[in-house]
Amino acid sequence: MNIKFLYKNSKTGIIVLAMLLLCLFPFTTTNAQNINASATLDSTTILIGGQIDLKLEVSLPNGTMVNFPTFNDTITSNIEIVEKGGIDSLKLDNNRIVLSQIFRITSFDSGLHYIPPIKFEILDGELKKVADTDPLSLMVVNPFKEVDPQKGMFDIKGVQDTPFKLSEILNYIYLFGGIILVIALAIWGFIYFRNRKKGEGSIFIKAKPDEPPHVIALRELDKIKSAKLWENNKVKEFYTSVSNTLRFYIENRYHLPAMEQTSHEILKDIKKNTDIDKPILEQLTQVLELSDLVKFAKFEPLPDEHALSLMNAYFFVDKTKENIIKSLEEEKEALMEKAKDSNN
């Protein structure tokens, strides 16, 4: 209203207007200069995949609103953001405030990368201003050899040679050696005291030799004989027991899977793998074939045939038994046991 009045009324009004304008210009310039935006990098050079911090900072009068630039994952197409820090504020004494934000960045593309000016939006009342940072450049260095597929594939690094050093394990040998020794002593102590309790005295017990197959077979045949199975009309049971005893004997004596074989297969395997005389084989054949007839065909042999089968079974075991050569010590033990039995 005052300006209008002065413009209309006098030349001095023009001078005053000019003075006013002159006063206003330095003020706006100062206001713009009061907002300083900057972007700084820790280093201008990094190795490929290396990480550095990009610091964005804006200094402005207290109470001024500012919009920090928003980045998603990248600063530029070549520069990626690894970690985004929060906005930090620092109040200065001169009624100003410094806002800063740190971005951890990396790049996987070698070469010189240009970071264009980063824009901050300043809201000064209803006015919207923009403060730019200076552009930056980042050099990304590739330390590896360039791979030329035409030249073929090669290792980036050669195989690392790590020779064995005794000193490496010496640090641990006493520790582990001590643990093993303690465990061994504990086991020995446990066995020793357990055996002492039992009265055995020694931790080393002489293993009893396995019974020879013919001893087991003859004992079983004795049991069958004394059970008088066929005399009690248990003919099928009698033949099943006799044939099973012979099959078990053959399995252990000749190491043939006789329990899982048919009579025909057993006879075939025995003929093939052993040098048993024909008459003995015929006796075995008689027992097995007759047993099959009784077991699977409800055949009822004559009483003479039962006796003959049992006799043939005894005969087969006796004629094919393994000759075991006893050591002097074993002979001595056997004699002593015999003497003990006779005394009792």
Binding site: H264, F296, A297
Partner: peptide, 10 residues
Amino acid sequence: RGYVIPEDVR
């Protein structure tokens, strides 16, 4: 044969 033996099954 009028009866089955294990050989037949096998």
